[in-house]
Design a protein around this nucleic acid. Structure first.
Lengths: 221, 221
DNA sequence: GTCTATAGATAGATAGAC
DNA sequence: GTCTATCTATCTATAGAC
C-alpha cells in the first residue's frame, strides 16, 4: 500500500500491481460472498488467482483488511450506480416509484453484494466502522430521495411524514429481504422469491406499497 | 439421540440428558448467533456449559448437527409464539395491523434468531433443507394471514391482489431488515434503526404501509 | 455418561531466496 | 514483486479410562 500503482502497459505483461490487486479483489469477493468471512479461505482465494497467497498479504496485509477492501469496492459500485440515477425530471410519484424499481433491479443483479452486507452485519459492521473510505462514502440515492420527498410533501401529494432515511430503509428492506432471505423463505414456505416468473409481480408490489404509503389519506391529515 | 430422554427428578441432580442438551443448545444459540457457523467454536460452547466438548459430540454428533438443532429450536419458539396469535376477532384492517405489530415486536425481542436466519441464508439454508422437523413445521401466522386476507378481499376492503405469502414477505422484510441490517445501516447512514426512541414510529410506519398497500384505490379496480 | 488427552487436519501468516 | 517451503496456532473430532 506504500508504493504508487503503476499504469498498465498494454502488450507488455509485467509487474502490474493494480491488475493483480483487482484480480484478487474479484476472487475474494466471490469467496467471501460464498462462504462468509470465517468460512472463506485465503488459500482458496490465492489458488483461483494468477498470483500467490504471499501477494495477498503483500498487498492487503491480511484476511481482515482484504475483506474490508472487498466491501469498499462493493459499496463503491453501488454508489456509482446511484450517481447514474435520473429520476428527478419525473413527478414525485413517478420518481419514487422509478427509484424503488431501480433499487429492486440493482439488488437482484448483485446477490454477492447482498451476501457481503449480511456477512458484515453478522460482524456488527466492524469493517465499515474501521474504514475511512466507507465512513465518508455517503449515498447519492439518499439525496435524491430527500429532494423528491420534499417536493412531494410540499405539494401535498405525499401525506406521510417519513423522512428520506425512513423511506430508503423501507425500499431497501423489501429489496434486500427478497434476495438475502430467499433460501430460508423458500425452504420454509415453498416459494422462490426471486423466481423470474414472479419478478414483475414483486417489482410492482414494491412500487405500489411505497406509493400507497406515501399518498394514503390519513385521519390526522 | 437413541436413548429416551429422562424426566427431570427435582432435587436429585443426576444424569439429566434433557437438561444438559438444553443447556448446550442455549449456549450454542448464543455462540452461533454471535460469530456465525464457521466463526463459532465448539470449544467455546463447551467451556460455557457445565458439561464438556465430548458431550456435545455425544448428544448431537457434530457441529453441523448442533447448528441444525439450534435452528430447529429457534424456529420452534417462533411457531409457538405464532400459535398464540389472537387477531381474528378483529376486523381485517385491525387484524392485519395487529399481526404486523406482533411480528415487529417478536423480531425486536429475538435478535439472536434474526442472526441465525441470516447465517443460515449465507449457507443457502442447507440445514433447514436437511432437517425433517423444519420441513414440516409450517407457519400458523401464514394461516392467520390467509384467512384475514380472504375476508378483507371478499368484503372489498382490500383491493390488492397479494396472497398470504406475499404479505408475509412484505411484513417480515421490514421487521427483519430493521434488526438484521442495523449495523451496516447505522454505520453508513448514521441512524440506529432499533433506537427505542424511534420504535413507535417504525412500528406505526409498518402498519400504515401494509394497510395503505392493501386498501389503496387502484386504477384497474 | 463423563472426563483427560490427543489425534489429524488445516487455517492464517511469514521467512527468505531470487 | 514473486516464488516455495514452512511455522505456529487452532480447530473439529475421537480414543480410551473410569
Amino acid at each position: 500500500m506504500t508504493s504508487v500503482e503503476e499504469p498498465a502497459r498494454p502488450g507488455v505483461r509485467v509487474r502490474d500491481g493494480a491488475r493483480t490487486k483487482a484480480e484478487i479483489l474479484d476472487v475474494a469477493t466471490q469467496e467471501f460472498a460464498r462462504a462468509g468471512f470465517d468460512g472463506a479461505r485465503v488459500d482458496e482465494i490465492a489458488a483461483r488467482t494468477r498470483t500467490t497467497k504471499r501477494m495477498i498479504y503483500y498487498y492487503f496485509g491480511g484476511k481482515e483488511q482484504l475483506f474490508t477492501a472487498v466491501l469498499e469496492r462493493a459499496y463503491g459500485v453501488v454508489r456509482e450506480a446511484e450517481q447514474q440515477l435520473d429520476v428527478e425530471h419525473l413527478d414525485p410519484v413517478a420518481g419514487i416509484r422509478r427509484l424503488a424499481e431501480l433499487t429492486f433491479d440493482h439488488h437482484e443483479r448483485h446477490p454477492d453484494f447482498i451476501r457481503l452486507v449480511s456477512i458484515e452485519n453478522i460482524h456488527d459492521a466492524e469493517h465499515i466502522a474501521a474504514s475511512e473510505k466507507l465512513g465518508r462514502i455517503g449515498s447519492p440515492a439518499l439525496e435524491v430521495i430527500r429532494r423528491i420527498l420534499a417536493a412531494g410533501q410540499e405539494s401535498g401529494l405525499f401525506t406521510a411524514d417519513a423522512d428520506a432515511v425512513d423511506l430508503h430503509a423501507m425500499i431497501s428492506s423489501f429489496c434486500f429481504f427478497r434476495v438475502a432471505n430467499r433460501h430460508t423463505f423458500g425452504a420454509l414456505f415453498g416459494r422462490d422469491l426471486v423466481d423470474p416468473a414472479r419478478r414483475e409481480r414483486y417489482r410492482t408490489m414494491l412500487g405500489d406499497m411505497v406509493i400507497a404509503y406515501l399518498t394514503a389519506e390519513r385521519a390526522g391529515g
